[in-house]
Design a protein around this nucleic acid. Sequence first.
DNA 1: TCTTGTTAACCAACTAGTTAGTTAGTAGAT
DNA 2: ATCTACTAACTAACTAGTTGGTTAACAAGA
Lengths: 209, 209
Amino acid sequence: MVNKRRTPGESQAAVFRAAAQEFAERGFEAARVDRIAARARVNKAMLYYHYRSKLELYIEVLRDMLRAVGVRTRAIADGSAPADAKLDAWIAAIVEEAAARPWFPPIMLRELASGAAHIDDATLGMMNAVFLTVRDVITQGQREGTFRDADPLLTYLMILPSILIFFARQRVIVQRKSVHGLAAAAPRDVDEFIRHVQTSARAMLRRHT
Amino acid sequence: MVNKRRTPGESQAAVFRAAAQEFAERGFEAARVDRIAARARVNKAMLYYHYRSKLELYIEVLRDMLRAVGVRTRAIADGSAPADAKLDAWIAAIVEEAAARPWFPPIMLRELASGAAHIDDATLGMMNAVFLTVRDVITQGQREGTFRDADPLLTYLMILPSILIFFARQRVIVQRKSVHGLAAAAPRDVDEFIRHVQTSARAMLRRHT
DNA sequence: TCTTGTTAACCAACTAGTTAGTTAGTAGAT
DNA sequence: ATCTACTAACTAACTAGTTGGTTAACAAGA
């Protein structure tokens, strides 16, 4: 009698959230469908009612975060601000997005590590679209003369991985306190981190030696 | 009759190499012991003759690379060069080590992504030891007045992840050519990459605004 | 107001296939 | 003769996905 049935879409959303967490913690292969269903307080058959397969569910999670990040960074790149302001905003956007969706950094890291093994071309294109937004900002700065002539891809590779690993590392430290000599590795404040990345990125792109 | 038996340690080494590749390509969970044995042209029971479990084998692979990187970077940090030269050497050492052991970057990335899920405290300490070498170099530079007062950990997090993902990304690009709009992502030369990271790291740590 | 048909939401129990690890024993080198 | 290197065949446990249903909600006709 008591609320057996949830409102429409509610259990689908619960499955999605549970899956995002499970995939972040364990990775695609080690994630267990049974565990996702249990976390979502849903029967496994219900999960297969909403999603065709484990892989489809995984790709759904991936696309959701890539869509969010892609839209936000594209808006920044297409704005009318000067390049260095755009770069700051781009960094802040990625960091905030990663902080808001804790599953984003681990999942993305693992995808990169596996050579994007579970990603179809369309989704890989969405990943690449995020790079294209910084590339646009960097080339704008180079045209305007504020940035030095650095390779946009290599610069991108100095910024994004740091952000992903920063959040992944916070988790390590929280989970396993007190490893000998790990004192210096105490968790850092997110705002402090944003400022550090912004300062570093600006320095990397400043002209002159 | 024909060479049934390999010389001592030979098949153990074959298992080790096969395992390193398998773990790098698939990660700990998705790696299959049967596949490792097949790659090493060894019976699975032979594998268990040399290693107690899949996990022990994995940790062996991890420690091997951490030992190599740890020793080399420690030597650099303990040398008598000025801090900026040491920093260049540190970066070159990591990049060369990653290039020489292709399994190093993917395995390390996945470990970071999973919150070092498969790592015991001793091995985690070895990971941390690598950080301590750059930290020493950075604080030396700060004492000498050549580096600005940047957080060593956050600086470390701008350098190492980039290197790891750079190599992981090369693999993605080689494996899956021709994704729409991925042209700008063509593989980069390793030497060019080393120089880029060195230039960026120096810029990040330069004093003044 | 009360059936009754329809459909979306839900589930216990099963299946077919896979996997890490074991056993019990063989054969070459010294 | 004995020890080290080696193996085919096995097992117990697990896993993604399926089957064959039940149950609540809601709407339309009587």
